[in-house]
């Protein structure tokens, strides 16, 4: 098996362990967009401290990991229009849908939530169509 798939599986197990700790410990769903969005639109200010400490962990651990992990390329574009358009769509979309890859995907599908499954089908479908359009039809990315 390709080494990337093995790292993917190991990383996935770590992600799921984080979600399991958050669920069993705090009784909360580890959804990145919900945790961030609740701070942005004030809807989650009553639990602001645990949201901020969670995000601090997400931000800090990679800084430690990259000290000994050499696969740290992001390949992120430096096209500002592309970044702003993508960021706006991700921000608006995840908050309208009430979840993203971690909340609807990882946490939702693992409890066989219909909403999680439907959301995941639609964001992967829309992502595939967008990719096909931007890369193969328009040749933009």
């Amino acid at each position: 098996m390709h080494i990337d798939y093995i790292y993917g599986l190991i990383g996935g197990l770590l992600i799921g362990t984080g979600g399991a700790i958050y669920l069993i410990g705090n009784g909360r769903i580890m959804g990145a967009s919900g945790i961030i969005g609740g701070l942005v639109d004030k809807s989650g200010w009553s639990t602001a401290a645990e949201r901020i400490t969670f995000l601090a962990g997400v931000f800090l651990m990679p800084l430690m990991v990259i000290q000994f992990w050499d696969r740290t390329e992001t390949n992120i574009t430096d096209n500002v229009v592309q970044l702003v358009a993508a960021g706006l769509l991700v921000g608006v979309g995840t908050r309208i849908a009430n979840g993203c890859t971690s909340g609807h995907g990882v946490c939702g599908i693992s409890r066989l939530s219909l909403r999680g499954i439907v959301a995941t089908v639609f964001y992967i479908g829309a992502g595939g169509l967008t990719m096909a359009t931007l890369r193969h039809v328009l040749g933009l990315i």
């Binding site: 769509l89 993203c100 439907v118 479908g125």
Partner: peptide, 19 residues
């Protein structure tokens, strides 16, 4: 759920990033 996920998917593909 549907409209939000479609918008999110489009943005996800555009930069290769989710939250």
């Amino acid at each position: 759920l549907v409209v939000g996920s479609v918008l999110f998917g489009a943005g996800w593909a555009t930069a290769g990033l989710c939250p």
